[in-house]
């Protein structure tokens, strides 16, 4: 059930948001690895014309929202690339197939945004998965679940700011695939948790969150400072 705070935020009256399903502490709960793993999320580096003292500027308007999505897809793609490269112990052939498919989808999403944004694209972001134990099924799938639900909530919350119908459709084409991932990962963890009441409310509505709340959570994993201050709200 939304609080007054979230109701107000649907109208952009507040900058701060509170989203119940994702507590930062819970998100940080999947700690296992002791050594920090730093990786560069994108496949290439280029000089960033939008970089400022406030961090990588996502930009404004639809471009800002697309860069916001690109940032999240960079995070997801880097995560699943690691998952597939260093599989957790006891992984089944079916789980390998599912996680490899998801890796492929997330890389496709990342590269799509990079290509579609062209010269407006933010650079490759530095990410860290220090809190993830890639050898542990619970840690990997727990993190995957959090990422997928976060992705769904991000697209659901940002769609309202998109002005160009083609961009909204593109975002819609991706978010339903993220929701398919979320449901699958949840099933791998707990039978019939695909859309339980931690993500779907009593009105049958899925999670949604505004960019500041999403980036606050993603910030645990994204090392590069991001300036989201010009995003529409």
């Amino acid at each position: 059930m939304p609080t007054n705070k979230t109701i107000e935020n649907q109208f952009g009256l507040l900058d701060e948001v509170e989203v119940k399903p994702f507590s930062r502490r819970k998100f940080l709960g999947y700690v296992g690895a002791t050594s920090a793993i730093l990786a560069t999320a994108g496949s290439s580096c280029k000089k960033d014309p939008t970089n400022t003292n406030n961090g990588v500027n996502l930009g404004s308007g639809d471009t800002g929202i697309l860069n916001y999505a690109y940032a999240l897809e960079q995070l997801e793609a880097a995560f699943y690339t690691m998952v597939v490269a260093s599989q957790y112990s006891g992984i089944t052939a079916q789980e390998t197939a599912y996680l490899t498919d998801i890796r492929n989808h997330e890389v496709a999403h990342r590269e799509f945004f990079k290509a579609a944004l062209g010269s407006s694209a933010i650079p490759a972001l530095q990410v860290t998965f220090a809190s993830v134990n890639f050898g542990s099924r619970a840690s990997v799938l727990g993190t995957a679940k959090a990422f997928e639900d976060l992705g769904v909530s991000a697209y659901n919350g940002a769609g309202q700011f998109i002005v160009n119908p083609d961009y909204l459709t593109a975002a819609g084409k991706i978010v339903s695939v993220e929701a398919r991932h979320a449901a699958l990962i949840r099933e791998l963890l707990n039978l019939n948790s695909f859309a339980d009441n931690t993500v779907v409310d009593a009105m049958g509505l899925d999670v949604y969150a505004l960019p500041p709340a999403v980036l606050a959570i993603a910030g645990t994993y994204i090392v590069t400072k991001i300036d989201a201050s010009h995003l529409p709200s």
């Binding site: 659901n156 978010v175 859309a195 949604y208």
Partner: peptide
Amino acid sequence: LRIHSVEARH
């Protein structure tokens, strides 16, 4: 959009 993603979970 929030219904759309629930349908996708289903």
